[in-house]
Design a protein around this nucleic acid. Sequence first.
DNA 1: AATGATGTACTATATGATATAGAACATATA
DNA 2: TATATGTTCTATATCATATAGTACATCATT
Lengths: 132, 132
Amino acid sequence: MLTISVDHNAKTPIYKQIFDQIVHHISIGELQPGNYLPASRTMAGILDVNFHTVNKAYDILRDQGIIALSRNKKYVVKNSPMDDLSLHRLEERESEIIDEAFARGFNEKEIHDFITGIIKSRNRKNKGALKK
Amino acid sequence: MLTISVDHNAKTPIYKQIFDQIVHHISIGELQPGNYLPASRTMAGILDVNFHTVNKAYDILRDQGIIALSRNKKYVVKNSPMDDLSLHRLEERESEIIDEAFARGFNEKEIHDFITGIIKSRNRKNKGALKK
DNA sequence: AATGATGTACTATATGATATAGAACATATA
DNA sequence: TATATGTTCTATATCATATAGTACATCATT
């Protein structure tokens, strides 16, 4: 069950909210390679947004190699191992966070604990969804 | 020596480029609590941007408690330990990155190695600047 | 006391990003 | 054939970003 919600009042653009939540569903295994995404008009109807906005989210997901258009004209989740470009972009964003953490007095161990804490709370939330 | 540069063609807003670089200088100890920031007009002249743009960066730094206006009307770097709000914001940004990493097949150890690598390369770059 | 430098507060304008809307088209499916 | 799909185009409205100019209060220096 693909649950996605958008906040029209948030500062985060709607297309990015959609993008982020699809990536999240993939990250917890709720969306797996081979699974189809809803048609952009369908998704737009459910979320009560314009289908162009959904298309923008799908476009970026495709540009990043996370989804692909299959022969039947439907978007499907790909297996998308980390490539150099994605890694580089992720490093830049992570560097900003690490800078802020250090600027506020964190040391290296505290940063690792910070990461561990987020991953643990993630696993707790999706305990039932984990396989095996 | 406070070296800051802006890229007018980058997609990242100029005020955020300035914000990020000041935070970076603090994070590596090149800017320390008690140090003054250049006057916004001075900084703007050096970077060849409008002083309102510098003010916006300073405003956000002040809102986040990273700098403060001292009695002589100059901005000074504060000691700004992690507070609940800052931690929460950082967690949200970090969660996005962790989601993308997991979505691309990283496991928990690979994420920690990813973090460690960034910190190590940071330390290498600033070896000479480290004290003691 | 006077001058200059500082942050701050307003107005204004221009450009790009975001979101919506509608229309049209090619292709795949039923 | 008819429907659903992604895609492409134009168009409009709103907000964020960046620039610009002006004015003012306060602080430091002369």
